[in-house]
Amino acid sequence: MSAAKNTVRIQRMCVAALLCAIAILIPMISPVKIQLGPMSFTLGSHVAIFIAMFISPAVALTVELGATLGFLLAGFPPVVVLRALSQVVFVAIGAFLLAKKPAVMKNGLSIFLFGLVMGVIHGVLEAVVVTAFWFSGMTMEGTFVSTVLGLVGVGTVVHSMVDYYLALLIWQPVSRAAKLPASFTFSKS
């Protein structure tokens, strides 16, 4: 293995560790946590995950599992922890798409559409998790439509888009300032 490739691998590993630590800490220490039944909104909880998606699939999946651990360690109910775990699917899809087609992040419309598609997949996955709890007899307020489809499904899409744009606001200047090599971002792991 060349020295340059080894350096990039070490950089990715260090960034993955830092993002994983952030992803674990956010649900534990975030001052902005709203929990409404099976739904929780923790501002910034997806930021490290999205930044990891911009780097590589391996980094993204590692950070996503760290985020799930963060929700578990923070003492969230099982439905919230399993919602976090379900994000592995949208993270894998998004990270592999970015690795194969980095041009997705080159113009405003495709950047928006990528975030929206990821948000919809994210919302559907979390709604499926909550649906399983709903039909298992978990006590929840409201109707299925208002709670599962509205609060969880649509709420997750909105939350995902907010965190996606926060991640972009952080990642774009940081990656430029750090002068990361092209092989570091939007590439296969």
Rank of each mutant, 00 (worst) to 15 (best):
K106A: 15
A95M: 06
V129S: 04
C20G: 13
L180R: 04
I29F: 12
S56K: 04
V63Y: 05
K179C: 09
S110N: 04
M140A: 12
I51P: 03
A48S: 13
K33V: 05
A48L: 04
V128I: 15
P77W: 13
M39V: 12
L73W: 01
K188H: 13
V148H: 06
V80P: 13
F184R: 03
I10G: 13
G70H: 02
L149C: 09
A178G: 09
A95D: 04
I34P: 02
K100H: 11
L72Y: 14
Q11W: 15
A23M: 05
I51Y: 08
W171Y: 12
L168I: 12
G108K: 15
V8A: 11
L168K: 10
A67L: 04
H159L: 00
L65W: 01
T7M: 00
F184D: 07
G123W: 09
F112R: 06
L166D: 12
A52G: 07
S187T: 15
F54Y: 10
L19Q: 03
I29K: 07
I93W: 05
M161Y: 08
L169V: 12
M140P: 01
K179F: 04
V15L: 14
W134F: 14
T62F: 07
F112G: 00
I93R: 08
G70N: 03
V145K: 00
F114M: 06
Q172G: 05
E64S: 06
A67D: 04
L18Y: 13
V162G: 02
L98W: 00
L82N: 15
L116E: 02
L25V: 10
A48E: 02
L72K: 10
A58F: 09
F50I: 02
L82R: 15
P173E: 04
G119D: 00
G137N: 11
I26Y: 01
V88W: 15
V81G: 02
V152E: 01
I111W: 05
A99K: 05
T185R: 14
M161G: 04
G153A: 10
L97W: 13
G108P: 10
A167T: 10
M28F: 00
L36N: 07
G44Y: 13
I10Q: 15
M1D: 08
S30V: 03
F71R: 10
